[in-house]
Design a protein around this nucleic acid. Structure first.
Length: 308
DNA sequence: ATTCAGGTGCGAG
DNA sequence: CTCGCACCTGAA
């Protein structure tokens, strides 16, 4: 297997190299600039279904980061960030966005796979985020047997009901304590359906320290996965999403209906496989880059279906 | 009105 | 342990 580097870009220019050494550059008007290396693609990264609370429009992406409303946009110079003042927060944002993920090298390796080689031209530049585990966990509990607009609706209502308002129409994501103290009746208002009790029970188990989300991060992938799966509403797929999108466990390969369909069609001649077979196949084939492979496959088959 | 949607928990074999 | 099934609810 030889990498076909036809789509690869040339070495970064001097400006890019110089900028990459610094965390950010202050611009007039309280706008900070975070340098990025190609092929990083902000809107693919925020819009590919890892996180649900970013709103993307022609002007850029808006959302809440560590309790502050922020607006992000990508230019040829990097990521412009409006709303965060101090360098510490910007460093955290840099980490959150995955700006230092070695995407060029990752995609060079993935491109050796003929399927991904075909897919990458339309998915290149998406990075795995490093989300806050708590919000990510609740988001994917809600995602089960649900659709994206309604997941977004539920998360928005949870913020409005139980979080704190930081701007017009913008709320923080509620803490474990805030959700643990919620009534099922109030949770039901958030259109959670039968997931309401899962959300509250999981919140209780986290709030009381029964499950330590920091300890999950310190554990190896298999143990961390088992730990998360002790929570109600958290099965294999949800656990893998949290491990991948929040904890940076790159070997996680969440198998949802889309990825299952993609792998069956593109790797197994459309023969039916179980979710476990698909996950084990992917982990064997892609190793620590399984999560990246999953994102590209997911993104590709979804836009294909939607005719984007 | 009917159908669909980024799984999970359950009981049965 | 694997398999099949029911499931809240908003939007198309």
């Amino acid at each position: 297997m030889v990498a076909s580097d036809s789509g690869e870009r040339g070495p970064p220019d001097l400006v890019t190299m110089a900028l990459a050494g610094s965390m950010h550059i202050d611009r007039p008007g309280g706008i900070a600039l975070l340098p990025v290396r190609p092929p990083y693609h902000l809107y693919r990264t925020l819009g590919c279904g890892q996180a649900f609370r970013w709103r993307i429009d022609a002007a850029g992406a808006t959302g809440v980061f560590r309790g502050k409303p922020v607006r992000l946009s990508q230019t040829s110079d990097g990521i412009a960030c409006e709303g965060l003042a101090d360098g510490g927060a910007l460093r955290h944002l840099r980490n959150y966005l995955g700006l230092d993920e070695p995407l060029e090298a990752i995609e060079r390796v993935l491109r050796r796979d003929s399927v991904l080689g075909r897919v990458l031209p339309t998915t290149s530049g998406l990075a795995l985020l490093h989300q806050e585990p708590w919000e990510c966990l609740i988001s994917f509990i809600i995602s089960a047997f649900n659709n994206i607009p309604k997941i977004e609706l539920s998360l928005h209502r949870l913020g409005r009901q139980f979080g704190e308002q930081v701007d017009e129409g913008v709320w923080t994501f509620p803490s474990p304590e805030q959700l643990a103290g919620a009534s099922l009746r109030d949770l039901r208002r958030c259109a959670l359906g039968y997931r309401g009790p899962y959300v509250r029970e999981t919140s209780r188990r986290v709030a009381c320290g029964d499950v330590n989300l920091q300890a999950v991060g310190r554990a190896e992938y298999p143990a961390a996965r088992r730990l998360l799966q002790t929570l109600p509403g958290v099965g294999e797929k949800v656990a893998d999403c949290v491990l991948l999108f929040a904890y940076g466990k790159g070997e996680a390969f969440p198998v949802d209906v889309w990825v299952k369909r993609a792998v069956e069609r593109w790797y197994f001649g459309s023969r039916r496989k179980t979710e476990r077979q698909i996950r084990e196949f992917a982990q064997e084939r892609f190793g620590s880059l399984a999560g990246y492979a999953q994102q590209h496959l997911f993104h590709s088959i979804r836009r294909r279906r939607q005719g984007e």
